[in-house]
């Protein structure tokens, strides 16, 4: 696939773009169908709760360690950069607010989403494609079981339960990292940091945080499931499906993240 990309680019860059667009449109169609069917079952409350809770548990367990690590180090790096800038202006007392705002509204949700796309989305794509390649999905269909109801709905419900938990957890770790940096680098005590955070952060910010968390989780689940359920072939295709699900869900999340920011941002306060 990539070798033919090279040939196409040599022929005309336009062809390559056209290819991406047509793949993207087809994928969007497949995702649309998965979303529509999932909501069909959700609205009829045809939900296997036990399986959903199990999926939530796995999503949490799989992501716990890696979310902790990335949240910690993102928090450290971000706060370090912000602290340096603010110290220069003598704005030490604002470090807490600026760091918390950035973590709650922007960096926190997108970091958690990247990790969930890499951890959860990729393993769902791998699992479902393996099931497809080994004809397990066909076996379900022969038994008249809708793979969407059986596989996608519980994963979606599980992700919706787990995502806010992971997000809040990542946010707290990130803010803790910010407090440590502020203390070490700018001599700002935990108390001053938190006062500044309390003064700047409002309920609306948490709303944006959760909104982004839910939307990103939905993007990851629907893209990885749609790709898994539509990929056939052999072992190599399982790997390619993982790559495609990571790439597409991240790309779509970056775009949607901006749109949500634009729609919810009300300007400076």
């Amino acid at each position: 696939m990539q070798a033919s990309d090279a040939k196409k680019l040599a022929a005309s860059p336009y062809l390559l773009v056209e290819d991406w667009v047509s793949i993207g449109v087809r994928l969007a169609g497949q995702v649309g169908i998965v979303i529509a069917k999932t909501f069909y079952y959700l609205l009829r409350l045809q939900i296997d709760w036990q399986e959903s809770i199990r999926q939530a548990y796995f999503i949490g367990v799989k992501s716990f360690l890696i979310v902790s690590l990335t949240a910690l180090f993102t928090g450290l790096a971000m706060s370090l950069q912000i602290a340096i800038q603010l110290v220069q202006f003598g704005g030490e007392s604002a470090i807490g607010g600026v760091v918390s705002l950035a973590l709650i509204r922007q960096i926190g949700p997108i970091t958690a989403a990247i990790i969930v796309a890499g951890r959860v989305g990729s393993s769902i794509a791998a699992e479902l494609t393996t099931m497809n390649v080994s004809e397990q999905i066909d076996a379900l269909k022969v038994m008249r079981i809708d793979p969407i109801k059986f596989l996608v709905v519980p994963r979606f419900v599980g992700a919706m339960m787990m995502m806010p938990v992971l997000s809040i957890y990542a946010m707290f770790i990130g803010i803790f990292a910010g407090m440590v940096i502020a203390l070490v680098y700018a001599d700002v005590s935990f108390g001053v940091f938190l006062d500044s955070a309390k003064a700047m952060v409002i309920d609306q910010d948490f709303f944006v945080h959760f909104l982004k968390a839910f939307i990103n989780a939905a993007i990851v689940i629907f893209y990885s499931c749609a790709i898994g359920l539509n990929t056939r072939g052999g072992a190599a295709d399982v790997g390619n499906a993982v790559t495609r699900s990571v790439v597409w869900s991240m790309t779509v999340m970056f775009i949607v993240n901006y749109i949500v920011t634009d729609l919810t941002y009300e300007g400076p306060r």
Binding site: A126, V238, G239
Partner: peptide, 11 residues
């Protein structure tokens, strides 16, 4: 292993 393991490795 097999197809499943390719998926695990990629993840």
């Amino acid at each position: 292993g097999g197809a499943e393991d390719v998926g695990h490795a990629t993840t």
